[in-house]
Design a protein around this nucleic acid. Sequence first.
DNA 1: CATCCGTGGCT
DNA 2: TAGCCAAGGAT
Length: 369
Amino acid sequence: MISIAETLLDWYARHGRHDLPWRQTRDPYRLWLAEIMLQQTQVESAKPYYARFLQALPNWQALAAAPQDQVLALWSGLGYYARARNAQRAAQEVVTGFGGHFPDTLEDAVTLPGVGRSTAAAVLASAFGQRQAILDANARRVLIRSHAIDADPKAAATQQWLWTLASALTPEDAHGYNQAIQDLGAMICTPRQPRCPNCPLASRCMAHAQGRSHALPVTVNRPPKPQRCAFFLLVADMEGRILLEKRPDFGIWGGLWCLPQAAPDGGEFAILCNDTLQPLEDTPAVRQFLQEAWSRRLRLDLQLMALEDEQQHVFTHFQLRFRCAHARVLGSAVADSAATLRWYRPADALTQGLPTPIRRILRNLGGGR
DNA sequence: CATCCGTGGCT
DNA sequence: TAGCCAAGGAT
């Protein structure tokens, strides 16, 4: 009987996505960058970012030496910004610790920030032809269905089982096989409405035999996202430049430039309780609070003007409701010299690393819509 | 080990 | 439309 690997490789040769940009190279830098960008990110979303990033920062040395703001600007809109910060740190370690060469063992590769077992394996297999098994969302789904695994996919024991399976099934040509199983997961064995009639593994897929392809992997019901709220400050100086604040290198939107924030509870994203009514209400007390909080923190004498209508932004683990507050500067418009506060002309602001909703706000400043 | 970390597309 | 999910890793 033909092995699963041979079946998949044969299918891949005829139906695989051979034209993906990162499949035109065996350069470890390019392969590694693709793996980082594709973490929790769909191929079509990553494509334009990948091309732009490589154009600007084509090798380890360029990335290692780049200003962090440039790296984050190239990542702006892709999400999970720790990937970008970790990628730069990894490049610096490759340059200084590995002589400018991506490490050629799994043990060394996973010491790089942002590089876990699956990412390391993918790079080692593709760049160096090593027999290394991956276990990403596609491979995981294929294995869970083909072996009709009912257990919670996220449980540690299941993960271990899946890694064992993946390692056992991965042939010498792991480079081809890894791409094949990923393409099968992306094109045939999709999360919803899998195309089993077109699947080369259908005849030996246990889930298919049991008529349960659509029911696997099992999903656990998520509780509703908590709601949070915030105000964003839109203030311009005499020359029409907008004040932005660089966020710290951790947490949500870490390292990105953002509009100054404030929330009713004094933090930046206030958690809403069920009994919190109208948390973003426009009242004199709220206006006074915002005006004082921002004036003090930004060392500006502000006067609050209009509050825009409420908007929303949904994150993985909470939902943000926010309003933009327009203000004018009464006192000195000389901003704090702190490196985390900067006035930007609107056009320049848009070239920076901005969170998506902030980019949307600034884009709409001039012409509406 | 559970939680944190973005965003866009799909149904 | 509201919820689900994606080429995961760090803490």
